[in-house]
Design a protein around this nucleic acid. Structure first.
Lengths: 196, 196
DNA sequence: TTTGACATGTAAGCCGTTACATGATTTA
DNA sequence: TAAATCATGTAACGGCTTACATGTCAAA
């Protein structure tokens, strides 16, 4: 059942994912395949969407009249479905960006769960977990720093650059924090392996 | 159907949520109500769990023999169900902490989506969004700083303190980043409202 | 010859949230 | 008298992930 289409007042708001797909499709007419690839290397850094989900959302947005689809037959390839944003789609996107209040996000971090229960594993194991997380942060930091540098000096990309910079700063915060708490983890290790 | 109990090899691993509930219940025997409250103010800062989900997980962990339940009749209150971790529950918890590999977490941030699509709203609106996010970060920072200070000088709480410190450092990173990109947002505003 | 890009989907099913449902006791 | 605490759950449902399914073409 499609509540969204049966009821003009739309009690149940579209999920954020739908609006993000709408936003991506608003940049230029695009296929699901193409949109998935673009999503993955741009907004996917802070709002990943499964490929299969993208196809579902594109279809739903069509049913709602927020996107229009044009089938384009191709030689030697499956028929493309090119989605383009409609007037009402543009309205809905702007309305969503403008009116939806920001809520504090309660995001899950399994690494911190490991730290929380850190005394249930060996001190060595805990330190290895910290090493791993540090390595992930370093990789992330390098990757996003490259993105930031690529967008340097391109005024029209300033906001996209800002989102990448956010990731860089947070990765750096993780690295600083890891250095800060490492002594604690190491103290636990030497306490057990030391002269007792 | 309960795949977990029908198949000793347990193809489908228990979700992280179940393990976190198991971990919380391992601290001391507790009721669902009590565990939910404790979860909310401790691990909930980086791994929130809905209260209703906690009741479901406690039941499942019982069916799997990882927890044991004791019903305690009370005067003037509903019968309590006190859950206590079993030997095999302790084993499973340690196994999970020890063996489950850390994966890079792709967490969603709707604020960054707003920044990404920042040129679709008015410069004023974008700056207000930045203001809001900054305020949230400041609140978060203050709240977690208080937690860190409360745990200062308590060696047995060093790891819990570390998880709170992680939140503090990240909130600070957000505040620094906000200050860093504010000029960009303001430039967009003056560009439109300025002499043109 | 094999990998990767192009191209689109369906099926299954747990996870998790929100709302609902109930009721006594204590405190402000 | 209203709100907070204690205390336990069910119902409904969408969201999202994982796996499955299929096939061509170009490049290494």
């Amino acid at each position: 059942l499609d509540w969204y289409i049966l009821d003009g007042m739309s009690h149940r708001p579209l999920p954020a994912t739908a609006h993000v797909v709408l936003g991506l499709a608003s940049i230029r007419p695009t296929t699901g395949h193409e949109l998935a690839a673009f999503s993955e290397r741009s907004i996917g850094n802070f709002f990943p969407i499964a490929r299969s989900q993208i196809y579902l959302e594109l279809e739903r947005l069509c049913r709602l009249g927020l996107l229009e689809v044009t089938e384009i037959a191709q030689e030697r390839r499956p028929t493309k479905r090119v989605y383009e944003i409609t007037r009402s789609g543009g309205d809905e996107l702007r309305r969503w960006l403008d009116e939806t209040p920001l809520e504090p996000e309660r995001t899950r971090n399994l690494f911190l769960v490991r730290v929380f229960f850190g005394d249930r594993v060996s001190p060595d194991r805990l330190e290895r977990t910290l090493d791993e997380y540090e390595a992930l942060a370093r990789t992330q930091c390098d990757r996003l720093t490259a993105v930031v540098e690529r967008l340097d000096g391109r005024p029209e990309a300033a906001l996209r650059r800002a989102t990448a910079l956010f990731g860089v700063r947070h990765a750096q915060a993780t690295l600083d924090w890891a250095a800060e708490i490492r002594p604690i983890v190491q103290a636990a290790r030497s306490a057990r392996s030391g002269p007792g």
